[in-house]
Design a protein around this nucleic acid. Structure first.
Length: 407
RNA sequence: GCCGGGGUGGGGUAGUGGUAUCCUAUGGGACUGUGGAUCCUUCGACCCGGGUUCAAUUCCCGGUCCCGGCCCCA
């Protein structure tokens, strides 16, 4: 028996229905915010991913040579590919460019709860904006997505990596990275070996700032941007989910300004379901300097959180099941199915002779909401019996009425 | 890459040094208009490889996959 590779999954129909439902919510919301969907290749030049993170990440991605000797990689994330697309072919698009995407990504990681080798990300990017309004819109869209799925227990932590960088801008580039890494991993003790006591103290004071917008008061003008972001978020009505947390440091070095993370505590160790912020990546890829903001939602993790919270919805079927009774010819059933399908009505019928009771059983097991019985008596008059499977109620109606009801 | 716990039909399980229990699901039938029930029946499993043994699903070693944790998390 051949198994799916480690860290990958199969999605049977009920699972896909659930996923498509969630996708639909996120797609509609992105469109409500004026974003357009894009798609990029599943594999890219390896260099696209080593550019910003160094060759070290090759250990963590699926990298390979193709038959022409090219160094390629399955995409480990979608921000860089989308930015590559922007730089390649959307340079003269009207600004700002607002894009969203949903796609599979691949990482060579140890699988565990909520972590797979093939996983799915939903993300958005607003390119060439960089304003508080853009940052706030991105956070608001992330929140709306998560909330509209039905998840209630989550929190948004908003920080600003630019303020942190300002404190250490005088240091060597390598040291800056080490400091940010230490802060990201919450290894605060190691700071003293990298920077002066004075700087370490100011860093520690800064990352202690947590709470509502009033904690920004102590930062003065540096925090004007974040104050405006928070103001916008309350206009969206989302202030209750958001807290300022200056200790939020995203792992990537291309983040430049506002950064945020969303956590679902119910998930335990792998609780982060969304991350994003303001970044400058286009320049690295050979484009102009395009201040951008984006986020990526861990699609699988959000769905996992929903399930753990008992909020996974039943996705109802809309298929009508056709059955014959008496001596109605099977060709007439096929013809009726074709007519209904041409009217946009989802229809299924037995592909082999099946007794009425077996047919009912099948319809029930498939959770079809309605069965149409083409009984000999009513079919003589061009009518059918419509059975509501949840109530068991039946009525006799003409094919025209049936089409009118469901199309 | 590291540590720990696991792996018995499609799903869920019982049990054992002499190849295996039950439930459920699936296929067929009883039953040719409503029988989504009931009953009968078929199919179907000891993760893989090596070792010990007369004999391994059981014991040992390695691998693999799953679960949890560490590292990492662009």
């Amino acid at each position: 028996m051949i198994q799916a590779p480690r860290g990958t999954r199969n999605f049977p129909p009920d699972e896909m229905a659930y996923r498509r439902w969630a996708e639909g919510i996120m797609r509609r919301n992105a469109e409500l915010f004026g974003y357009g969907e894009v798609s990029t290749p599943a594999f890219e030049s390896l260099e696209l991913f080593t550019l910003k993170s160094g060759p070290g990440i090759i250990d963590e991605i699926y990298a390979f040579k193709d038959k022409g000797g090219r160094d390629l990689a399955l995409r480990p994330e979608l921000t860089a590919p989308v930015m590559r697309m922007v730089v390649n072919s959307m340079r003269s698009a009207p600004k700002p460019i607002k894009l969203f995407y949903l796609g599979n990504c691949f990482r060579y990681d140890r699988p565990q709860s909520g972590r797979y080798r093939e996983f799915f990300q939903f993300g958005v990017e607003v390119i060439s904006a960089g304003t508080p309004a853009a940052d706030a819109e991105i956070i608001a869209l992330a929140i709306k997505n998560i909330r509209d799925l039905g998840l209630e227990d989550f929190r948004v932590k908003i920080g600003h990596i630019g303020v942190l960088r300002g404190l250490i801008s005088g240091l060597e580039k390598g040291v800056q990275t080490s400091v940010l890494q230490a802060l990201d991993r919450e290894e605060y003790d190691s700071l003293s070996s990298m920077v002066s006591d004075d700087v370490a103290g100011r860093l520690l004071n800064l990352i202690r700032l947590k709470g509502d917008a009033s904690v920004l008061d102590s930062l003065g003008d540096e925090a004007a941007h974040l104050r405006k972001v928070m103001e916008h978020l309350s206009l969206y009505g989302y202030e209750k989910y958001c807290t300022i947390d200056m200790s939020v440091v995203r792992g990537l070095d291309y983040y430049t300004g506002m950064v945020f993370e969303i956590e679902a505590p119910i998930l335990g160790a792998e609780k982060q379901i969304c991350g994003g912020g303001a970044y400058s990546l286009a320049k690295l890829l050979g484009g102009g300097d395009l201040p951008s903001t984006g986020f990526a939602i861990g699609f699988d993790r959000v769905l996992l959180a929903l399930e753990k919270a008992g909020k996974r919805p039943e996705i109802p079927s809309r298929v009508i099941y056709l059955l014959r009774a008496g001596n109605v010819p099977s060709n007439e059933m096929v013809k009726l199915a074709a007519d209904l399908r041409n009217s946009g009505i989802a229809v299924d019928f037995p592909l082999a002779d099946k007794s009425l009771s077996k047919g009912m059983k099948y319809a029930s097991a498939m959770r079809y909401p309605h069965v149409v019985i083409m009984g000999e008596d009513e079919w003589k008059d061009g009518k059918i019996t419509l059975r509501d499977m949840s109530t068991g109620k039946q009525e006799t109606l003409s094919v025209e009425d049936l089409i009118a009801r469901f199309s």
